[in-house]
Amino acid sequence: MIAKLRAGLALALLLILTVPLAGLQALAICARWPLAHRLPRLWHRLACRVIGLRVIRKGAPAAGRPLLLVSNHQSWADIVALGSAAELCFIAKSDVRDWPLFGLLARLQRTIFVEREARGKTGRQASEIAARLAAGDAMVLFAEGTTSDGNGVLPFRTALFGAAQGALRDSGAAEVLVQPVSVAFTRAHGMPLGRFGRPLAAWPGEVKLVPHLLTFVKEGAVDVELRFGEPVSFTATGDRKALARGCERQVRRMLAASLSGVADEAVLRPAADGSI
Rank of each mutant, 00 (worst) to 15 (best):
A10G: 07
A10W: 08
A12C: 14
A12D: 09
A12S: 12
L14Y: 14
L14F: 14
L14A: 13
L14K: 05
L15F: 12
I16H: 11
L17I: 09
L17R: 11
L17P: 00
T18G: 07
V19G: 10
V19I: 14
V19D: 09
P20N: 13
L21W: 15
A22D: 03
A22K: 04
L24R: 08
A26L: 04
I29G: 02
A31S: 11
A31C: 12
R32T: 10
W33D: 05
P34L: 08
L35E: 05
A36E: 04
H37W: 08
H37Y: 11
R38N: 08
R38P: 00
L39Q: 06
P40V: 07
R41Q: 09
R41F: 05
L42K: 02
W43R: 02
H44T: 03
R45Q: 07
R45G: 06
L46E: 01
A47R: 01
C48W: 05
R49Y: 12
R49C: 07
V50T: 13
V50Y: 15
L53T: 12
L53G: 01
K58Q: 14
G59M: 00
G59V: 02
A63K: 11
A63G: 15
G64D: 15
R65W: 06
P66Q: 15
L67P: 01
L67C: 10
L68N: 09
L68R: 00
L69Y: 13
S71L: 14
